[in-house]
C-alpha cells in the first residue's frame, strides 16, 4: 500500500515514523490519519467527527429543551432544584474544564513530538473524567436518598435523562482516552498520526461544552429562582 507523505503545518515534509525512532510504531501503511486528497479538500475523518458533533448538538438540545419545558411545572412538594449543591457541582464543572486543558496539552505534546507529554496528559484527562464520573455518582446517590429520582416527577425524569446521557458520553470518552493512552504506551503515536488524538479531543471538548450549558441552564438558573424566592 502506498504510504502517504507527512507534512507539517507549512506543508513541509516530515520525517517518516519508524525510522530510527523505536518509540514510534510504524504500521507500514497509510498512517497519516487518512490525509490524502479528498473531494472536499478536508480530512474525511474530521468532517465525519464534526458531523457527529452536530448531530449530538441536536440530541442534547432536545434533552435540555425537555428539561426546560417541565422546569417549574413539577408536582408541588416533591424534591427538585433545592437539593442542588452548587459549590460541589462547580468543582465538578471545573474538573471537566481542566480536563479540556489537559486534552489540548496532550495534542500539543504529540504535535511537538513529545511522547512523554502525550502520555501524561492523556492519562490526566482520563483520570479527571473518572473524577467527574465519581462526583456524578455521589450526586446521584445523594439525590436518590433525598427522594429525587427518575420516577418522582417530570423534573426528575428529565434531569436524570439529561445528566445520565451526559455521564454516558463522559464514560465513552474515558474509555476512548484510556485506549489511546494504552496504545501510546505500547506502540507510541507518531506526530503525523496526531489526528487520532485530535478527533478524540474534539469529542472530549464537546462533552465539556455540553456540561457548560447544563451547569448554567439546569443547575444555576433553577437554583437562582429558589434563592430569589421563585419566579
Amino acid at each position: 500500500m502506498a504510504r502517504a507523505i507527512a507534512h507539517d503545518e507549512q506543508g513541509r515534509l516530515l520525517p517518516q515514523a519508524g525510522h530510527g525512532d523505536s518509540d514510534i510504531h510504524d504500521h507500514g501503511h497509510d498512517d497519516h490519519g487518512g490525509e490524502h486528497p479528498t473531494s472536499t479538500g478536508l480530512n474525511n475523518v474530521k468532517v465525519l467527527m464534526w458531523t457527529f458533533i452536530a448531530s449530538e448538538c441536536l440530541l442534547f438540545g432536545s434533552l435540555i429543551s425537555t428539561y426546560l419545558a417541565v422546569e417549574g411545572r413539577t408536582i408541588p412538594n416533591t424534591p427538585g432544584p433545592e437539593l442542588f449543591d452548587i459549590p460541589y457541582t462547580s468543582v465538578s464543572a471545573f474538573v471537566l474544564l481542566f480536563s479540556s486543558l489537559s486534552m489540548v496539552l496532550a495534542l500539543a505534546g504529540l504535535q511537538a513530538g513529545d511522547q512523554r507529554q502525550l502520555r501524561i496528559w492523556l492519562f490526566v484527562t482520563a483520570a479527571l473524567g473518572l473524577v467527574f464520573l465519581g462526583g456524578q455518582y455521589y450526586e446521584f446517590s445523594t439525590f436518590y436518598f433525598e427522594e429525587f429520582w427518575l420516577d418522582k416527577n417530570f423534573l426528575g425524569s428529565s434531569f436524570f435523562l439529561l445528566t445520565g446521557f451526559h455521564g454516558a458520553h463522559v464514560t465513552v470518552g474515558v474509555i476512548w482516552l484510556l485506549a489511546l493512552w494504552l496504545y501510546s504506551l505500547r506502540y507510541g503515536i507518531a506526530p503525523e498520526k496526531s489526528l487520532l488524538v485530535e478527533i478524540s479531543g474534539l469529542y472530549w471538548h464537546f462533552v465539556d461544552v455540553v456540561w457548560i450549558v447544563i451547569f448554567a441552564v439546569v443547575y444555576l438558573i433553577p437554583y437562582s429562582r429558589i434563592e430569589g424566592g421563585g419566579h
Binding site: 507534512h7 507539517d8 503545518e9 507549512q10 506543508g11 490525509e35 490524502h36 486528497p37 479528498t38 472536499t40 479538500g41 478536508l42 480530512n43 474530521k46 468532517v47
Partner: peptide, 16 residues
Amino acid sequence: PGADAEARHGSTAHDA
C-alpha cells in the same frame, strides 16, 4: 469546503 485550508497551505490535502 476546504478552500480556507487550500488558501492557507497551498494544497487541498492539508486542513492543518
